[in-house]
């Protein structure tokens, strides 16, 4: 994937992800609703490729307003990834040379890789995760399961142990997928499925769309830095 194609794909995907996020704020009122309406307009401009630099700048300003308004992220990790993609995309496009554009977009790809690897590493060093106990706790008493019925899964220790290790192994070996493009595409499909399952079980729908918006940066980065090692 070329850098320009990766930029454009990221613009389209982040615009769609932000549209989904912003639409939910149309239920609010007053200034909050008005600012998210402006965000929707900037997303539409970005989506259709009209005044993209200006649209990105508007989205960056609104991202600062949101941090102030909610005194941090509104939606935890998905807002952090939203900020990272938006700021990297905007800064990269404002850079005067190709070298710095590649450095900044490469940083986004690097962070995406870390997002899987570090999540896996913190689990694999924790005995509660290794035994499957942590995932049982998530289903038993955390605020995340979307329905009471799902809490029953906490009584299926072998199933949750297997699910835990499937996630841990995927996350810790994810960086190896950079060695081959076909492998990377397969790993990103598994990653998207993982986020989809989190949306189904825990209602984390924003993660699906925003993590997928970072995938083009990694597809470009893999070709640019690694090619096909094997």
């Amino acid at each position: 994937m070329t850098l320009d194609a990766a930029f454009r794909a990221t613009e389209v995907l982040i615009a769609l992800a932000f549209l989904q996020q912003s639409a939910e704020f149309m239920l609010r009122s007053g200034v909050e609703r008005a600012i998210f309406a402006v965000r929707i307009m900037a997303c539409l401009a970005l989506l259709f490729g009209a005044q993209t630099e200006l649209a990105l700048l508007v989205l960056v300003v609104i991202s600062l307003w949101m941090l102030h308004r909610f005194q941090g992220p509104y939606n935890g990790g998905s807002d952090r990834m939203s900020l990272l993609i938006l700021w990297c995309l905007t800064l990269a496009q404002w850079m005067p040379t190709l070298f710095w554009q590649e450095v900044i977009f490469g940083y986004l790809a690097f962070q995406l890789t870390l997002s899987y690897f570090i999540s896996g590493r913190v689990k694999i060093v924790n005995p509660e995760w290794r035994s499957g106990r942590a995932l049982r706790d998530v289903f038993a008493f955390s605020a995340y399961p979307v329905s009471e019925n799902l809490r029953q899964l906490s009584t299926r220790p072998r199933l949750l142990w297997a699910a835990t290790w499937a996630v841990i192994l995927f996350e810790v070996v994810f960086p190896l997928a950079l060695l081959n493009q076909t492998l990377l595409i397969a790993a990103l499909c598994i990653g998207a499925s993982f986020h989809l399952s989190n949306a189904i079980f825990f209602g984390l729908n924003r993660f699906v769309w925003i993590w997928m918006a970072a995938y083009p940066s990694l597809l470009w980065f893999q070709g640019r830095v690694f090619g096909d090692v094997f």
């Binding site: 992220p73 990790g77 952090r80 900020l83 999540s119 689990k123 942590a134 706790d137």
Partner: peptide, 14 residues
């Protein structure tokens, strides 16, 4: 800052 340099330590402990 945590948005630009995230820790990614999701569910480190329950």
């Amino acid at each position: 800052l945590p948005g630009l340099i995230p820790s990614w330590e999701f569910f480190k402990a329950i």
